[in-house]
Amino acid sequence: MSFAGVSIINYSDVTGYSIEVSAASGYHLLVVRGYSRTKYYASGTVIRSRLFKVGGHRWCIQYFPEGNAAECAGSVSFFLALLDENVTEPLKMQYDFSFVDELEKQDPAYIRANEPHGFSSSHPCWGYDGLIKRDALEKSKHFNKDCFTIRCDLVIATTVDISIKVPPSTIHQHINDLLLSKEGTDVTFSVGSETFVAHRCVLVARSTVFKAQLFGPMKEGVVASVVQIQDMEAKVFRALLSFVYTDSLPDTEVDMGEGKKGGEEALWLQHLLAATDRYDLQRLKVLCEEKLCKHIDVKSVKTIFTIAERHNCCGLKEVCLEFLKAPAILKEITAADVFDDIIRTCPFLLKELIGKFAF
């Protein structure tokens, strides 16, 4: 599934950004912040996500904090809405809503097993009248600090009945098994107090920086010796190495208790993002940006914006600016004296924020 952007709901304000996905499948994230301020809305009150595009069509997510009708009161409702006009022939779509940590529901095979629904101008919306009861949501693991994140996956259904099922690719698992078994490794890295062994050919195939370091003019200096990695934590290099072999973001290495887990994860992601720039791993960089979007709040926005500016993360910068320009957020920042800190230590953020208000 291709990432189609993120929408962040702060009370009635909606910020975020979208990525146009030309493929026939994709997903959009809806982050609900300040949930407690929306749960007493009247039944039928809707908050819409930002517009996003998947498969050449325009979509949005409709969030009903108190259900989409009186009979759904006490529940939260979610609908996927087609925004294209003059669609007379129903567009067959398979879709599902899940909480962002429900990975088993986000497998493409799981989505494609759902019954297709016909979206058209006369019937543009399909969804769940009551995805979950409010009291169950508030007690669930998906709810944290008055916030939760919904993922909407959608696939344009095919009418072709394919009888031969092609198994999913396992090449990433096979290559990762090489790293785990340490068989055939031919280069050693020293990071802090830890050492890591890897395969020179895999590294140079994935990173131009590793290629220059291991196959370039200075390769003789690292063939028989241990490569020293400075200014990087071992857990960050371990994550970077895992991505090189699997092409996916590894699990967060957080040692703190649940109360500090969010802050520790954000810090780990910031260090990992810096490492992606250092070794020119652009896909991992975008994955870090996507994850960091979920950690933007009043206390962290300045730091995350600074990281985005330093490493040329345009999408992450845009989400920070959209978050800051919301009237409710500006009021909270001013009251907390965070604005004075931004003026003193991060004037370029203030300059870009003013530019936002000019348009």
Score class of each variant (00 low, 15 high):
Val14Ala: 03
Gly118Tyr: 06
Val191Pro: 03
Val286Tyr: 07
Ser98Phe: 05
His311Tyr: 13
Glu66Trp: 11
His271Gln: 04
Asp280Ser: 04
Ala42Leu: 14
Gln173Pro: 08
Lys325Ile: 06
Asp101Pro: 02
Arg283His: 00
Phe148Ala: 02
Val223Trp: 14
Glu89Ile: 15
Asp247Lys: 04
Glu258His: 03
Asp341Gly: 01
Val87Pro: 00
Ala234Ser: 08
Lys325Thr: 06
Leu83Phe: 07
Ala4Leu: 00
Pro327Cys: 09
Glu85Lys: 12
Cys293Leu: 08
Leu51Met: 14
Val227Asn: 08
Leu203Cys: 02
Phe243Leu: 01
Cys346Glu: 03
Pro65Ala: 06
Thr334Met: 15
Asp340Arg: 15
Leu30Val: 05
Ala4Ile: 07
Ser49Val: 04
Ala358Gly: 09
Thr303Pro: 07
Gln62Ala: 13
Ala358Glu: 08
Cys346Arg: 06
Leu241Arg: 00
Leu203Pro: 05
Ala266Ile: 05
Asn86Phe: 10
Gly26Val: 00
Lys294Gln: 13
Phe189Asp: 03
Arg37Glu: 05
Ile47Asn: 06
Val14Cys: 05
Gly74Arg: 05
Asp247Glu: 02
Ala239Gln: 01
Asp186Ser: 04
Tyr11Arg: 12
Leu269Trp: 04
Gly44Asn: 02
Ser75Gln: 12
Asp255Arg: 07
Asp161Glu: 12
Tyr27Val: 05
Tyr128Ile: 15
His28Gln: 08
Lys133Ser: 06
Val6Lys: 07
Asp297Tyr: 02
